[in-house]
Nucleic acid binder design. Structure first.
Lengths: 364, 364
DNA sequence: CTGTTAGCGCTTTCAT
DNA sequence: ATGAAAGCGCTAACAG
């Protein structure tokens, strides 16, 4: 059995001592060098127990001698039909996404479920330009999780077109995709009821309305103008609470922020509070924004809640430190649920998974 | 030209109206249906301009009719030899990683560079058990970035064995891999000099020493015991500063935390401060830990810096809010640098890219 | 336990 | 502008 080298039928492998021309070493070459079949070499990596110790050793030796880098994951995933990776589409400059503690908590939830199953998690860049679609469909992932976006986001179509499992967080609803979200309308209605109790001049600090992320202070912002379903629902919730408190929505100033961060909310809140008739109650769509309002209030020498009643949204860790009355929801649990759903489990219903946490920032 | 159905040579495609047996639609089928060659169909997706408008339209129509999901990214990446994805190995339960603002800033830097180049970023799960290695080598990524780990982490070997571009952040140094890190020894020496100025009973709050993440308070922790190079260097830096200030390192209590978070540092700091001879100066290895110490001090009714001089590390945003004297470094820039290095650029030298930011938490 | 065969789905030649 | 052939590197499915 030793020395069966009848003839060199495959002459295209003439790089015997060609150390200068480094090409990718393949399993075939390793097998050849080890004097075993390709399958034995393959099994040595994928199911070592199916290979005799001797053969295994020879394959390993050959691999070391040839400096073989191990089975190519691309070829493997093509053959096996799975990439062991889940994709998360963050429809925002990623730098911003990572500055949002809510988004980070969500990612942590996704990541943990992925890790438990030996899956990786690919964060997919979506810059807003054309080409996002193709970048998404070219992503080698087994399923997609889409972070809150607008009704008209073309990326949704691109993801849906891949026919792979798809889970949307927050919204919009996409046929064929799971949705994981609390009932934002109900939650913000409840928060608004707290924020605006006893108010004389209410105001709202809002997340962006549309994908262009226009910002500014305006009155009478019809909720339907928002193409982010989450924003739309929250605006509608606040509007409902205000109506119940006897206010005309069209008179209420809404500060629309381009990004969900402290700085911009602070800037717009300062503008709001510097106006002729400054608000005495503000409902903010996130804790980040509420923190910005808090800073603006402090800078303006206003007492919270004495001069200004304030609520946030999400209940991030900082909210407790700052005594922020807010809507508690677990973005982390929702991240986990999204990942599970992407893996084929039926997701739990998060509609009612929220509560108003009363602390010190809203007037009792 | 209509109706060229000579003969059914390929009988394995007998699912003409088989709506019940859904299989993956391939480009070949689309081409067949469109009445063009596979290549025309392929070009329609990859280089549309090379295909006549008519052919393009026919292919698109066929794709819609067949509900074709687009070219399979796995096959594509096998053929093209690139996955358009970078892998980031976080050697910690991912949930923890995302709770660390420093790690998050780092990821944001990586993510932004990836996004600029149309690359995705895959977070690779490393749970600490065996099988991490294979999970890493199975990852379909074009290069790896490894977040601070220990000298003996087997994942390093696994990554190096892939022969793909590899960049390590923090440490350890791996031959063939780039290293992006500040000079932790120098930085912590400088921070220690500030923290321990005029101290009578100094102490250190440390990140974990080894991969087992044992925690507890101990004296005379030899820096060489730490297999995390970053921890080792920082311990050595503090030890150096203490020696200069006339202290015997072996007398100095070191609170070693299992994780880099506020809670554990707070717990150990409370223990430290509750001892018979509580420290009056603490150097912490991260701002998260310093915040924990700050809380413990407050709970113990101690003034900072009056009763307790304190320094942190990293200069996260919260550090400024809390008036923490700390070592400033841009983890975000370092993340960007790691990504660039993974893409083949020669990385900038970050050795001196730090500075001590003097605020109110350390005695002047 | 080992080997042979036959592709996974696509795209790079190089013709036509 | 289009097409035919030849694999990318690997592994299921079966023989031996």
């Amino acid at each position: 059995m030793a020395g069966d080298q009848h003839d060199d039928q495959d002459d295209d492998q003439d790089d015997d001592q060609g150390e200068h021309r480094r090409r990718r070493v393949t399993l075939t070459q390793v097998a050849q060098r080890a004097g075993v079949s390709v399958m034995t070499a393959s099994y040595t990596y994928s199911r070592p127990e199916r290979v005799s110790p001797e053969a295994r050793a020879r394959v390993h030796d050959a691999a070391v001698e040839l400096d073989y880098a191990g089975p190519d994951p691309r070829a493997r995933s093509l053959r096996r039909g799975s990439t062991l990776t889940l994709g998360v589409v963050m429809g925002e400059r990623l730098g911003y996404a990572f500055e949002d503690p809510g988004a980070v908590a969500f990612l942590a939830g996704v990541a943990d479920v992925c890790a438990d199953r030996g899956y990786g998690m690919t964060i997919l860049p979506v810059s807003g330009d054309l080409g996002d679609g193709s970048r998404v469909s070219e992503a080698a992932v087994d399923g997609f999780i889409v972070w809150t976006t607008t009704d008209d986001d073309p990326v949704l179509m691109a993801v849906a077109a891949t026919r792979r499992p798809m889970v949307v967080h927050g919204g919009p609803t996409v046929t064929g995709a799971h949705l994981v979200s609390i009932d934002n309308h109900a939650a913000s209605h409840a928060a608004g009821a707290v924020a605006f109790a006893g108010a004389r001049r209410p105001a709202v600090v809002s997340q962006p309305l549309t994908r262009d992320r226009a910002s500014g202070i305006e009155r009478g912002v019809a909720p339907s103008r928002a193409s982010f379903p989450v924003t739309r629902d929250r605006l509608a919730g606040y509007a409902g609470a205000l109506a119940e408190a006897g206010f005309a929505w069209d008179d209420v100033p809404v500060a629309v922020c381009a990004r969900n961060n402290v700085e911009e909310a602070q800037r717009l809140a300062a503008e709001l509070l510097g106006a002729a008739e400054p608000p005495d109650a503000v409902a903010a769509m996130s804790d980040q924004q509420a923190i910005g309002v808090l800073r603006a209030a402090r800078a303006a020498g206003l007492e919270v809640p004495g001069d200004l009643s304030l609520t946030g949204f999400d209940d991030v860790p900082a909210a407790a430190d700052l005594g922020l009355t807010t809507v508690a929801q677990s973005l982390r649990d929702q991240g986990e649920a999204c990942a599970r759903a992407a893996f084929g489990e039926e997701p739990a219903d998060f509609a009612a998974a929220w509560s108003v946490v009363t602390r010190a920032s809203a007037r009792p």
